[in-house]
């Protein structure tokens, strides 16, 4: 589960010149819970996802991820926590030098999984996202939709305990978007906690779920 208590975040933590990105955010998501993260651009959705992905630290308040308090965790413990988190970035963040196969295999290799397992798992998920024939292609050779599917495959291949997705369907057609949401629903049923930031109202209507709405860095709605 994840738990936030009065969490605040400012990008320039040392100074006071940067605008406050998040103010007094408090909510909880139980294990296996699914939340839509809503709000206009600049509302603080990406900042909140950064905090939850442990790639930034709150400047105030307390944050618990998967049962661990972030403020008190040592660096090695944070690294272990990050291995249990999957993230689909809005800009995909694929490594252009690596083939699709190696991009997707990264989380498994960082867990020191045997290479035979890595091969089986990556080929399996490549088939699921419809990119079985593009394993040796490099990200710049792929379309935007294909890159997004690679990013999704990389985020879920290690069956994370917490899955964070920032606009994961914006480059997908309706069929692919629905398949992705079905996958998220299945993962949630298996115990993965999921937060999805989106502007896609049609998708939200098709897959109604608990919503967290942000505006100007504040949590407006939790329900």
């Amino acid at each position: 589960m994840i738990r936030l208590r009065d969490v605040g975040f400012r990008y320039d933590a040392a100074g006071t010149s940067a605008p406050v990105a998040l103010r007094q955010i408090s909510f909880e998501v139980p294990q296996g819970g699914f939340r839509w993260l809503l709000g206009p651009s600049g509302a603080g959705k990406s900042s909140l996802l950064r905090l939850l992905a442990l790639t930034a630290r709150p400047t105030s308040g307390t944050l618990e991820i998967l049962g661990s308090s972030v403020a008190q965790a040592r660096r090695a413990a944070l690294a272990r926590l990050r291995r249990r988190i999957g993230v689909v970035h809005q800009d995909f963040r694929l490594l252009p030098d690596l083939p699709v196969f190696d991009n997707i295999a990264l989380p498994l290799r960082l867990q020191h999984r045997p290479e035979d397992d890595v091969r089986d798992e990556v080929h399996s998920i490549l088939d699921w996202v419809g990119l079985g024939s593009r394993a040796t292609a490099r990200p710049p050779q792929l379309s935007g939709g294909e890159q997004q599917r690679v990013a999704i495959a990389r985020a879920v291949i290690h069956r994370p305990a917490l899955l964070l997705a920032d606009e994961p369907t914006n480059a997908l057609d309706e069929y692919q978007a629905n398949r992705l949401m079905d996958l998220f629903r299945d993962l949630s049923g298996l115990g993965t906690t999921i937060l999805v930031a989106t502007h896609n109202d049609a998708l939200i209507r098709r897959y109604p779920a608990h919503e967290l709405e942000l505006a100007q860095g504040r949590l407006l709605r939790d329900g």
Partner: peptide
């Protein structure tokens, strides 16, 4: 920088 930040975010330790 980009790949380091990425694999760090995926759980690569400082030692690795």
């Amino acid at each position: 920088r980009l790949p380091i930040e990425l694999i760090h975010a995926m759980g690569a330790t400082d030692g690795y």
